[in-house]
Nucleic acid binder design. Structure first.
Lengths: 380, 380
DNA sequence: CATAATCCTGAATACGTATGTGGCCAACTT
DNA sequence: AAGTTGGCCACATACGTATTCAGGATTATG
């Protein structure tokens, strides 16, 4: 096998024929370019350079605000660029500079690959993330995938994005394996989730323990003593487990012993919340309040209670978590622990950008906020 | 001014010195490349070529399934590429081939640039569009902007995307100007909205007239005779106007004369629906049913009616439009006209792709579907 | 067996930008 | 006035892939 077959470059060291010049010989002295139709061909930095009487590199530098270009030259170039409606070619720019000014958002929800049932909480987050990206001058690539797909490994390798934001619920064991893979690759990424030590990558999340504590404290303050929790508390959904833990600690502080019979598993869907409430009722244990692991669970539970003839809040007070848009539209409007979408999205984007720029990053927990609506009331 | 200053290419036609070869002289015969650290450097098609004993173009062809590459060669190349975890560089690929395999989604909502109040209908659409893009092998760039921004003109010019999907409500006059600008530029785009003749570009939308007719027919079938409409009917929001027109035609067919006093303006928010219902009550005109221009309007109206002591559906039946997730969670669950998100997203993406591929495209209207829940009931 | 058709591959090069380096000129130093 | 500094800019080139063209090898054809 000849060792020159895979050589880079056209001539492999042989002298170049004098009749061949590299790079667009037809554009010599600008004549070739001007023969082309300006209406169909987007202008390039060479076109701008030609009109401005400068070289192409000067155009590139001027448009990016490089201080080595004089003010007068820059102004002139900017004017011509605007006039010709010139836009920097993103692909060429990224190819040369090795960064894309684009972030990727991976949105996964393993148990529910159904279009319409995307958790509203994450959709609100998406809005916030998209807006923050725009403010920072970054584009956002969005993808909805199964957690088990290989989507995440592609994005940096193929230079589509400079970093990845991970958003979603899913089985935490699968999730963790993916995170470790990303970290091993050296991919820049941040995730939204339960903040715990010893996890791969950087996590931004709500202070779920404190949120759970606040929810319980609110109910206890209303005179409730038998507080049920609806939501999975296994290691597969760390957020819900954290919320439960916070709730328990508030109860213990108030001298209430958390009763395992008052906890029923549910995942974050309305249907699952409905089922969990039915299960709770079936057990026949007394309760005067429900802390639901999420708003969707709470809304499902309220439907079950209504069907069972229980009144919210006079028979049972309910607190949710997330403050999704539907929470204020439910009947009655739901008392809940709000997460600040705007801050959360900004924190995710800014942390990722710091990581991309090789600045120090650290996990962060955002404070939740109790929003009292009409699903909770003092005990009679 | 010398006329060679802006010339393309390094030598401006002079004979090339024999000692200089274009393109990576240090990579001659592969030696330069192999000196670099493989762990930090992503492999290129040259690396694959070297290991496979073929040239770089053959690698490029093989990985894109070009039939001129023999099966044996392709298999070998694919194996090596997989082993080295090689990924085609998106920027280089797009730069050379002049297409990006990326679509852009522009999401605007002019009156409400607020993060949290994004219309849930569009968020559901986003999920469907993202999923369809993934199925078609396209990436999706997402942006939330004001309609008045210049976002849309950038995307094709800077070669970030091959086409644009426009989604959102907003003042139709501003909107139309933007559409004309896009068309003049020759940008590939489709929009979701009211399908009308003589509009710039290609529009995909729900058959709003038929939806309005179905909603009214349903109410008439329940014995309602005084049907109010909540929603703007001006040319600024053509969808709502279409829905109203459909409602009126159903009433006329049933021998009912639409009463202008039974129409109150509202935009697509819960708050606006609430206000419109208050306004309707204030007028003191009798009505036995409400057709709301959207689910959010309907939910706001239900809140107003509850506060006014009116029972839904025994005092007044209500029909919404869109079937957003919250519609089934409201109290009572909302009868509404459903739009098929999955089909809508697929239609938008596929129409845009046809346009990009220079195939024939045409506007399309998707059939709506009446979903009866508990906010409507036969008149006593 | 010569010639044509076919198949496969390599050589050469373009895509449009960003950036390291060197050089020219004017404004300064001693 | 000779040397020195910055300020600005042009030159040369790399980034990694896709594509056109031409040619070698193989097979089909007469």
């Amino acid at each position: 096998m000849p060792d020159t077959r895979y050589a880079r470059g056209p001539y492999r060291g042989a002298a170049l024929p004098a009749t061949l010049a590299p790079n667009r010989p037809q554009a010599m002295a600008g004549s070739g370019r001007s023969r082309r139709a300006m209406l169909t061909d987007k202008p390039t930095s060479f076109d701008i350079a030609q009109r401005a009487g400068v070289s192409q590199p000067t155009v590139s530098r001027a448009l990016r605000g490089d201080p080595t270009v004089s003010e007068a030259t820059r102004k002139r170039i900017e004017a011509i660029a605007a006039q010709l409606n010139y836009k920097v070619d993103k692909n060429a720019s990224s190819l040369r500079s090795r960064h894309t000014n684009t972030l990727a958002l991976l949105f996964f929800e393993d148990p529910t690959p159904d279009d319409s049932l995307i958790n509203p909480f994450f959709l609100s987050m998406l809005g916030s993330i998209a807006r923050t990206c725009a403010l920072r001058g970054y584009d956002l690539l969005t993808s909805f995938q199964q957690l088990s797909s290989n989507w995440h490994v592609d994005y940096e390798d193929s230079h589509k994005a400079d970093g990845i934001i991970l958003l979603g619920y899913g089985d935490y064991e699968t999730y963790r394996a993916r995170l470790e893979q990303l970290e091993a690759q050296g991919t820049h990424f941040v995730r939204w989730g339960s903040v715990q030590t010893g996890q791969p990558g950087t996590t931004i999340g709500c202070d779920n323990v404190r949120g759970g504590r606040d929810a319980s404290a609110h109910l206890i303050g209303l005179g409730c003593r038998r507080i049920a929790f609806l939501g999975q508390v296994s290691s597969h959904s760390p957020e819900l487990a954290d919320r439960y833990r916070g709730a328990c600690s508030a109860m213990l502080e108030a001298g209430i012993d958390p009763d395992p019979a008052l906890q029923a598993d549910a995942i974050t869907t309305e249907a699952s919340g409905y089922e969990a409430a039915i299960e709770l009722l079936r057990r026949g244990v007394a309760f005067d309040a429900v802390f639901a692991g999420s708003d969707l669970i709470a809304i499902g539970a309220m439907r079950a209670f209504e069907e069972a003839g229980l009144d919210v809040p006079s028979d049972v007070s309910i607190v949710g978590f997330d403050d999704i848009p539907a929470a204020s539209l439910s009947h009655p409007p739901l008392t809940t622990i709000a997460q600040d979408y705007a801050k959360a999205g900004a924190a995710l984007v800014d942390t990722l950008l710091r990581q991309i720029r090789a600045q120090s990053v650290e996990a962060a927990m955002l404070p939740p906020r109790l929003v009292v609506r009409r699903s909770t009331a003092p005990r009679a």
